[in-house]
Design a protein around this nucleic acid. Sequence first.
DNA 1: CAGAATCCGTGTAGATACTG
DNA 2: CAGTATCTACACGGATTCTG
Lengths: 131, 131
Amino acid sequence: MADEIEWNVLMRTCPSRTSLAEIANKWTAMIVVVLGAGPLRFTQVRTRVDGISAKVLAETLRRLERDGIVTRRSYDEMPPRVEYELTTLGHSLAEPLEALRRWAEGNIVQVLEAREAYDLRPTSGGGRDLA
Amino acid sequence: MADEIEWNVLMRTCPSRTSLAEIANKWTAMIVVVLGAGPLRFTQVRTRVDGISAKVLAETLRRLERDGIVTRRSYDEMPPRVEYELTTLGHSLAEPLEALRRWAEGNIVQVLEAREAYDLRPTSGGGRDLA
DNA sequence: CAGAATCCGTGTAGATACTG
DNA sequence: CAGTATCTACACGGATTCTG
């Protein structure tokens, strides 16, 4: 994290930026993290990623399938059963995302404290720049 | 990535989840990554995170400041100069985010290929479940 | 169970104009 | 330069209903 990098311009035309923007999504990140532990059925994912609607889950899973992150395996049974599993590519993505989740878990207290401190600052309620 | 984890349920009540959702944001991730190389002025950030509007950049920086991720240093000069810099906490966040950016950069081709293949599949155009 | 379809509210982002 | 203010809009997510 010490090297000065000239490439550090995230051009809007760069396709990897679009990709990053998609990954860096609330639900996407959570779903991949959850699937990192192994294949799950639709409802299982939904239970673990608590709060997501069926619609959004289906949409996101579809997109992840399209991007080669997860595979969708549908068993022709009754009642229907569909399993989602990370691909190799998906697992490679799960690693950095898992690191991110760990960061969130490990630093939430600091964030909360910083937030509280910020909100208590006189500048945050009234006048802006303290100059 | 092999341990079966029962905690792997991202409860909606868990504050770290909210935190993750905020981090896993298009602009947030890019800004932190860009600031990872060192302090930058407002316009410099804006240039590097190409495409972001001044409004959204200001809002996001404010939120990051509130969360203790960046510091805002305003020099009383004319013309005005404001520098944003990652805090220690911010740098600790930049690492996993940088890893994520690297992933996006390194795997964009595979994603693009997978996407193309998916779109060419007969099922993606017409009838759904191939059963 | 695993979705698809529909409707709808709103948050978040974008463009534009203005200011210290 | 570094923002703020205002307005707009559309994509995103949520709730509900229906189906194979």
